[in-house]
Design a protein around this nucleic acid. Structure first.
Length: 489
RNA sequence: AGCGAGGUAGGGUAGCCUGGAGUGCCCGCCGGGCUCAUAACCCGGAGAUCGGAGGUUCAAAUCCUCUUCUCGCUACCA
């Protein structure tokens, strides 16, 4: 073991504030939170960042529709994101907003560095322009040759724009992918990206003259920086340009993103960093999407799931647990209250909740001292859990924890502690109480509230990963309520 | 069209990379045990020619080829 603390920097995307957070946003953030908490449990020096993307035409439009001032509008929505994450128990260390000065400062420095490297040039951006929407679209975006937003006719227009020489970095990117096999994650996404990069990269238009709600392009202030390019820089602006914090935390260890924005993070972002003379992140992980009751989640269908409402109905921990347990990180999944309810009843209440309750019931009545030989330790697949967490196989890790919970329930049945007394009972209780203490540590990244509740009932303090092994049980038992209550199906 | 992923018991999955008895898990179903516990817990059982065809091999869910079906992505769209 090294004495020096390892650093760990994880980010979520910054979310576009044209509407409040839905289940998809919550998923990204919850998953990242679990990983961040796990690294804190390991004793790492963790920096966990999330935030909001507040520039661009769409936001201006959304504000206009509500007849609100843009600044007030983004302020309000950024606030709803913050409070949403708070109520989902998200432990982010910082919250970056692209309208903050610290962001703008770093964006300027970043763009200047790219320019010094000769990677920016003036050109013409050509696309299909919808006048009423004031937006450019690509061929592919058009719907039957018309504007995908309003359905009206579009016209071919050219606009002066500055470009980033993305094409220059094709080989360097491919080399980086090759030397860093973990960078493109999950694994099945890597060939997808590599093949496309091999197919050739076009230079990227990174400024817009038409967009006023944005950060001015430092080289030519009549332009503003195109939102995507600007937004990516948030991961750096939260640390500060060439600051102590950057020194410590950059490069990011994990950028957690949805699969729809994988390209930006896996290709454009590292190329931008190469250009600015900075190291690329160590891993971009593209997770999947949730459908709801088998249908795509969309406003028009009216099935957008509100994570706050859901956590209110079933508890924050039940929601967090369901989202990571239901599907392997990276896969798509289907969300339904029925499926959530089943896991709540069968796993949270019946396996874990009941184990805690039955053990504590017996332990509370026992007045001897607790001690014995660790008999259950062999069932705890600690290495597998650690490996899975390292590989970001969160569902695998929690599943392994659950196997242990089941082994504990079996141990109760086999040992029949209600028939025992004295030394024998003390030994069985020692095994079960230590197991509960360890389980509480292991589930704490996933379900911080539940872990806390369990600790209180066991009368033990917070543990770290180092404490997740059999030792001496020093808790002061105080049985409380069920950890989880079943719900009516 | 190109690229990618996937088709394993009624449903959902793991296993596939690094071939070795269909081996496992969850839900559901059937039977039993227990009574500390949230009608909870534990044990047992039924149920799959591992999408189809061919090939390699002593041996294929696993490797190769073809075929069929499903889904995703295709760059300035958060």
């Amino acid at each position: 073991m090294t004495a020096k603390k390892e650093k760990f920097y994880i980010t979520t995307p910054i979310f576009y504030v044209n509407d409040k957070a839905h289940l998809g946003h919550a998923y990204t953030v919850i998953v990242s939170d679990i990983i961040a908490r796990w690294h804190r449990l390991r004793g790492d020096d963790v920096f966990f960042l999330t935030g909001t993307d507040e520039h661009g035409e769409k936001i201006v439009k959304a504000a206009e529709e509500k007849r609100e001032d843009v600044k007030a509008f983004v302020e309000k929505l950024a606030g709803t994101y913050k409070s949403c994450w708070k109520s989902l128990n998200i432990s982010n260390d910082d919250f970056i907003r692209t309208t903050e000065k610290r962001h703008e400062d770093v964006v300027f420095k970043f763009i200047e560095a790219m320019g010094k490297n000769g990677d920016l040039y003036k050109g013409e951006y050509e696309g299909w322009y919808c006048v009423p929407d004031e937006t450019f679209f690509t061929d592919l975006q058009l719907k039957d040759g018309r504007c995908p937003v309003c359905g009206r006719e579009v016209q071919r227009l050219k606009e002066e724009s500055y470009f980033f020489r993305l094409s220059k970095y094709q080989n360097r990117l491919l080399e980086y992918y090759d030397n860093n096999r973990e960078f493109l994650s999950p694994n099945f996404r890597s060939t997808e990206i590599i093949n496309r990069v091999k197919g050739g990269l076009k230079d990227l238009s990174i400024t817009r003259k038409s967009v006023k709600w944005g950060i001015p392009f430092p080289i030519d202030r009549r332009h503003s920086i195109y939102v995507w390019v600007e937004a990516l820089i948030n991961y750096l602006s939260a640390l500060g340009w060439h600051s102590e914090k950057e020194e410590l935390f950059w490069p990011a260890d994990v950028h957690m993103v949805g699969k729809e924005i994988n390209w930006f993070h896996s290709v454009i972002w590292p190329a931008m960093l190469f250009s600015a003379g900075l190291e690329p992140p160590k891993k971009v992980f593209a997770h999947g999407w949730w459908t709801v009751d088998g249908q795509k989640m969309s406003k028009s269908v009216g099935n957008v799931v509100d994570p706050i409402a859901m956590s209110g109905k079933y508890s924050v921990d039940a929601l967090r647990y369901f989202l990571v347990r239901e599907i392997p990180l990276g896969d798509d999944g289907d969300f339904s209250e029925k499926a959530l309810g089943l896991r709540l009843n069968n796993e949270l209440a019946a396996d874990l909740g009941n184990l805690a309750y039955r053990v504590l019931s017996i332990a509370e009545k026992f007045d001897g001292s607790i001690g014995g030989e660790p008999e259950l330790e062999a069932s705890l697949e600690m290495e597998k859990i650690v490996d899975d967490m390292q590989a970001l196989n969160l569902s695998g890790a929690i599943e392994t924890v659950w196997r242990y919970i089941k082994a504990c329930n079996k141990y109760v049945n086999d040992k029949k502690p209600w028939e025992l007394k004295g030394k024998e009972l003390s030994n069985v209780l020692y095994n079960l109480l230590e197991s509960l203490r360890i389980i509480s540590i292991l589930i704490s990244p996933f379900m911080p509230d539940t872990s806390e509740k369990l600790n209180l009932q066991l009368g033990v303090g917070h543990g770290t990963l180092k404490d997740a092994k059999f030792g001496t049980f020093n808790g002061k038992i105080k049985k409380g309520e069920y950890l989880f209550r079943k719900i009516e199906p």
